[in-house]
Structure formats: structure tokens, C-alpha cells
């Protein structure tokens, strides 16, 4: 039954074997299913992200969203996220830690009795950049989806925020197919930046497919904010599941 699912909070070892919390939804089925690791956006593991986790379960994926701010807790997810955001991205979600948490989530999914052995990653906003990096640094994964990940390219210093090197330098090690979705009205990444990421991956011969949407900006999948764009989001979700069904379920 397509819409039967179980959802719960689980714990699993992440980076440094720290046990971190995650929100899991899985379809109720006897058939083997692939796994998906979902990386929340900057506000944290909020109701929209949890809704998307359940959406994956209805599409036949066991999906877990690691709470990437978990180490700032314990506490209500919104307070934990607020503490993480106040500390800044580099301190609250350092790349190496997030990659370790993703690898832990992938191992957890693969260890479940109903797993088909395949695991992908999808991330939104800061999670998009983390999904891009995971495609290079977490070889245990089989596919990656970057939804409007910002700061993949080097960024100049802005106001009090220091310059960053981005993660594009890791692209030579990208070891799996990458799907990218971007809104053409976004400012990070803007159209020229997406062009540049596309150019680098093409030059490196990396398997990547980008879909870019007019009339959409950053976070156009997010249903509880004004930036939501119905038509583009419906088309984007179709692209996501076509890609994942091919790479993780072996569908044509």
C-alpha cells in the first residue's frame, strides 16, 4: 500500500561515533527499498523537512534526516537550531562532522532489514552544499541531489562573515551521479554561479544533470513560505524521483 508508512525519531552513530538524533520514515512493505539521507536547511529539522521525509517514504524510500545541530542540544529542535545558527555555520556544522553524520546515516539505513543496499542523499539550502560535498567525500553513497546549495563556489568576505573556499575544489573526487535543482531568481547560487559549477563538472567529466527554473528563487519547494512555487516545485519533484528511481531502484 503506497501511502502506508512508519515515522519516528531514531538514534544512530554519526561522526566520531557520537550518537545523533534523526527523523526516520519508511514505507510499510515487504519489498526491499533504497535509503535516502535528507539534509535539512539552515532553520533546522523543521516541520517542512519532516514532511519531506514522510514524502520520501510514500515514494518507496526509507528516509532519515539527521539532526545536524544535534550536538548543540539537548532541547527543542528550534532552540537547538537557534543555538547552532548563533554560533555560525563553520562551528555548528563543520564539513567533516556533517560528512561523518551522513556516512553514519547511510550505514544505519543500509543495516535495516528492508534495505536494497542503495542509499542516496538530498539536501536543501546549506544542505544542498553538503549534499554536493557528500557526493565527493562520502563514497558509501550511490547518488546525490543538490537543491539550490549556496556557497559551493568560493565566497568573498561579506560584512562580518569571513571568506570561504567553497567546496568546488573537491569536485575531482565526485564519485556518483549528481542532480541539481536551481531557481533562476536565486542570489546564492545565482545563474552565473550555477553556470560555473556546471562548467567545472562538465570539464571533469562528472555525471551531473541540472534543472533550472524561471520564476523561482531560493527554496522554491518550501510549502510554508512565500517563496514556494507550485508549478516549478511539482516539476522539480518529478525530476528528483525520476533520478532517484533510476539510480537507487534501477528503474529505466
Amino acid at each position: 500500500m503506497k501511502d502506508a508508512l512508519l515515522a519516528e525519531f531514531v538514534g544512530f552513530p554519526g561522526h566520531n561515533s557520537d550518537v545523533i538524533e534523526g527523523y526516520l520514515a519508511r514505507p510499510v512493505t515487504d519489498a526491499p527499498v533504497p535509503g535516502m539521507v535528507l539534509l535539512h536547511h539552515a532553520p533546522g529539522l523543521d516541520p517542512w523537512c519532516k514532511e519531506v521525509v514522510r514524502r520520501f517514504a510514500t515514494e518507496g524510500y526509507a528516509c532519515v534526516a539527521p539532526h545536524l545541530y544535534h550536538r548543540r542540544g539537548p532541547g527543542h529542535w528550534a532552540d537547538v537550531a537557534a543555538a547552532g545558527r548563533a554560533a555560525g555555520l563553520a562551528e555548528s556544522m563543520p564539513n567533516q562532522q556533517v560528512m561523518g553524520d551522513i556516512a553514519g546515516a547511510a550505514a544505519y539505513l543500509r543495516a535495516q532489514p528492508g534495505s536494497n543496499g542503495k542509499v542516496g542523499v538530498i539536501g536543501f539550502c546549506s544542505g544542498g552544499r553538503q549534499a554536493f560535498l557528500a557526493a565527493c567525500d562520502v563514497p558509501e553513497l550511490d547518488a546525490a541531489v543538490d537543491c539550490w546549495g549556496g556557497s559551493i563556489l568560493p565566497q568573498p568576505p561579506v560584512d562580518g562573515r569571513p571568506a570561504s573556499n567553497g567546496v568546488i575544489g573537491r569536485a575531482p573526487d565526485m564519485a556518483m551521479p549528481l542532480l541539481g535543482l536551481f531557481g533562476n531568481d536565486d542570489s546564492n547560487p545565482d545563474v552565473a554561479q550555477v553556470d560555473e559549477i556546471d562548467r567545472v563538472l562538465t570539464e571533469l567529466g562528472k555525471d551531473h544533470t541540472f534543472f533550472r527554473y524561471d520564476g523561482a528563487g531560493h527554496a522554491f519547494f518550501v510549502t510554508d513560505k512565500p517563496v514556494y512555487r507550485l508549478e516549478q516545485a511539482l516539476e522539480g519533484w518529478q525530476r528528483v524521483f525520476q533520478f532517484l528511481d533510476r539510480t537507487l531502484k534501477g528503474a529505466d
Binding site: 539552515a42 532553520p43 528550534a78 537557534a82 543555538a83 539550502c125 513560505k225 512565500p226
Partner: peptide, 28 residues
């Protein structure tokens, strides 16, 4: 930045906190 609950793409976020008492000591 992006708010958690207010229905805007971006908002002015103010957190009145006492970090020594844990992350729950917060009026957001």
C-alpha cells in the same frame, strides 16, 4: 535570515538567551 515559523522567506530574528542555562533558555 530564514525564519522557522513566521511566514516569510526572510525575517529579523531576535533570540534573547542565557547560554549558560542551555539552549532552552531562549525567547525567540
Amino acid at each position: 535570515d530564514h525564519p522557522v515559523s513566521a511566514p516569510y522567506d526572510h525575517a529579523l530574528l531576535l533570540d534573547f538567551v542565557d547560554p549558560a542555562q542551555g539552549v532552552g533558555a531562549r525567547v525567540g
